Simulated scan of single mutants.
Amino acid sequence: MSHTALIRSHRKPRRSASKIAMRAGVAGGVLSTLAVAGASGSASAAEPVTQTLELPTLTADLAAQVAQSADATQQAAANYQLQAERDSAAAKAAKQAKSDLAEAKQKAEAKKKAQQAARKAAAERASRSAERTTLAAPAASSASTGTSTSTSTATGSAAAVIAFVKAQIGDAYVSGGTGPNSWDCSGLVQAAFKQVGVNLPRVSQDQSTAGTQVSLSNLQPGDILYWGSAGSAYHVAVYVGDGMFVGAQNPSTGVAEKPLSYDPPTGAVRVL
């Protein structure tokens, strides 16, 4: 026994057995909890936890809807492509039709102009034929009756022009000749009218439009006759009356007086 055991103040209070057992149980439970927690923590640190998400499984109906949607999309794309091809073909056809129409119009217009030109040419040929027949008749009548065709009933300036060209009968024909002893057709006509103060162009083409166009059935002495069309004549001479004309014809005849029937002219102009 301790030497202090008998002193009341130094005695330790006795613990009951129940309290001691309870404390032992609590301590054991705490230790058990800590051990479990530690084991759990160690396991968590060693192995990561993987979470698995489950995707919904495609049902037969859903798969059919997806396939139907894909078919519809493909069909729509095909329809758009077909429509684009049709639009392109229609535009191309419209363009070709427009081109064909324009070409047809051009051909029709050209054909129309050709027909008009042919009718005009036929009318001109018929008119010239009629005028030549009319002119040939007086010349033939004069020859049959023995009437002199070297005379003229012209007066004034026309008489002076006729006198000049008759004075040159027998001169040579030379292309580009303007006298005094050789002439070409337009050179002789120009020189004749210059005698009366009328300045004519140098060439036949211009002389055929120098005055007023007159009908071959209404000729007067002093009129200028031309062969070819007005503005593009290739020969000219002077009408001297009685169905006769004087001109520088060609190198074979030179300046000569001939009846209208010898070489019927195409037209005539009057400058006096």
Rank of each mutant, 00 (worst) to 15 (best):
M1C: 13
H3W: 12
T4M: 04
A5Y: 05
S9W: 01
S9D: 14
S9L: 09
K12T: 11
R14C: 08
R14D: 13
R15W: 14
S16R: 10
M22H: 15
G25V: 15
V26K: 11
A27P: 01
G28S: 14
G28T: 13
A39H: 02
S40N: 10
S40L: 15
S42M: 15
A43W: 07
A43Y: 00
S44M: 13
A45C: 00
A46G: 06
E47P: 01
P48L: 08
T50F: 06
Q51W: 02
T52F: 03
L53S: 07
L55R: 04
P56Y: 00
P56H: 03
P56K: 08
T57P: 03
D61Q: 11
S69V: 14
A70Q: 15
A76S: 12
A78R: 13
A78F: 07
E85I: 13
R86I: 04
K92T: 15
K92D: 13
A97E: 10
K105E: 11
K111L: 14
K112R: 14
K112M: 12
K113G: 02
Q116W: 01
R119I: 04
R119Y: 02
E124M: 13
E124Q: 09
R125M: 05
A126N: 00
A126F: 06
E131T: 10
E131V: 04
L135Q: 15
L135K: 01
A136F: 04
A139K: 07
A140P: 00
A140W: 00
S144A: 12
S148W: 12
T149A: 07
S152Q: 00
T153W: 06
G156L: 08
A158S: 13
A159Q: 13
A163L: 00
A167S: 15
G170V: 03
A172L: 01
Y173S: 06
G177W: 01
G177M: 07
G179A: 02
S182F: 11
W183E: 12
D184R: 02
D184L: 10
C185M: 08
S186T: 07
L188C: 07
L188A: 06
L188D: 07
L188Q: 09
A192Y: 05
A192C: 02
V198D: 06
N199K: 10
L200S: 02
L200D: 03
D206H: 12
Q207L: 04
T209K: 11
A210Y: 11
S215F: 09
L216S: 06
N218G: 03
N218A: 11
L219E: 07
L219D: 03
Y226W: 05
S229E: 14
S232Y: 02
S232D: 08
A233Q: 12
A233E: 05
Y234V: 07
H235F: 03
V240K: 05
G241N: 04
D242A: 12
D242F: 04
G247A: 12
P251F: 09
P251Y: 06
G254N: 06
A256V: 03
K258P: 10
P259M: 08
P259V: 08
P259D: 09
S261F: 00
P264T: 11
P264Y: 11
T266E: 10
A268M: 08
R270L: 00
R270M: 09
V271H: 05
L272Y: 05
